[in-house]
Design a protein around this nucleic acid. Structure first.
Lengths: 203, 203
DNA sequence: ATGCTATCTGAACGCATGTTCAGTTCAACC
DNA sequence: GGTTGAACTGAACATGCGTTCAGATAGCAT
């Protein structure tokens, strides 16, 4: 058999990426075989090579797509004025975007070591662009005297680590709702970078 | 050949664990073969099985040793009085302990998915004990009115994620010294959980 | 009905894997 | 200096890996 009704490149391609993302996140890139991915899609292993040149590209493409999507969504945010509003917007956006994509996030942070050098550089550059966006906010806030951060680079990495950690525990329909989680993390981020006006939306 | 001068179980055993820790952290559990570990130790693959029943136990033992060492070192801290002092102590301890063991930390957080169910439960229980220690501090602080945290569980995980993130970037001899890094993170942690007295040791 | 072509199968390739074990080697003891 | 036994080798095992490719299949156009 081959080519069931309506079966197409446009169907199988995305299903392969989805299966790979799911399995890579669950078991790790190195622990997942092409045959397992193929089985999840309902296809033989050989068929995967019509959609990806090799396993490594499958991983690199997932990571690049995730980070490019992240940067694009961030760029599409409405402009906010003032470092405090911009930080609040960043924190809420980060939580909201990551909460919906735990698999992609996990892969993008954990499988870097399985990328070949060229792919690694490309992915790292994307991540750095995102980090730089936050660092710019912190620098502006420090210059304006509304944030007290001894080191903007350290604070950037600390905040991103704190916010991204939400994917380790948040589950849809759990004890805390999405909006609550966004608000609490945004407040913690605001408070962490310090000084003047202490904010407390949530009680 | 076999048994070079003074070569013993007491030498080879630790060297195997060290090699495994190093390689697992660098490439991931699933991507590292027993032959690679053996080669790093300077031994044939079969010899590893004099020191570990299998690859899985090698991983589980590394993770358990790390978490037990963490809990033990934490328990050995001098008693601190008051939630604010206890949080400061926790944050500085966490940074200090993790900064010296990036490989073990990375494995303990990343390779959970490669543990068989029994090992997973045991390791998870250890991690939870450590998290509970921090959460107790936050609860006491909230009760005393010195911390403002809407949800102590969320705040616990957020702080631990923020602090643990130090292992992703800190390198000995880098731009920032150990004491500086500890102080900055401790301040960020203190500020993140909020309200009354805003602390600012570092400038 | 016939041919075309995108889609997929199924077998094969060389190689690596975790693990076992009979046999070798050498420091230590009598 | 002969014996013992812990420490290790080296080959073998079944199995699985990523990848290739000739051939089968089936939807579409004619």
């Amino acid at each position: 058999m081959a080519r069931k009704t309506g079966s197409h490149s446009e169907i199988t391609g995305p299903r392969i990426r989805a299966a790979a993302q799911h399995l890579f996140a669950r078991h790790g890139y190195a622990a997942v075989s092409m045959r397992q991915i193929a089985a999840e899609v309902g296809v033989q292993a050989g068929a995967l090579y019509l959609y990806t040149p090799d396993k490594q590209s499958l991983l690199a493409d997932l990571m690049r797509d995730h980070l490019e999507g992240l940067l694009e969504a961030f760029a599409d945010l409405p402009p906010a004025s003032g470092p405090e509003a911009r930080l609040d917007q960043f924190a809420r956006f980060h939580i909201g975007y990551h909460i919906d994509r735990p698999d992609a996030v996990f892969i993008a942070y954990m499988e870097l070591r399985n990328l070949e050098p060229d792919n690694f550089s490309a992915i790292e550059a994307l991540r750095r662009r995102y980090e730089n966006a936050l660092e710019a906010i912190l620098r502006d806030g420090r210059a304006a005297g509304v944030f007290a951060v001894p080191d903007t680079k350290l604070a950037t990495l600390a905040l991103i680590a704190m916010l991204t950690g939400v994917t380790n525990w948040y589950r849809e329909g759990g004890r805390l709702g999405r909006a609550e989680v966004e608000a609490i993390y945004a407040d913690m981020a605001r408070n962490a970078v310090g000084s003047p006006a202490r904010v407390q939306h949530t009680a």
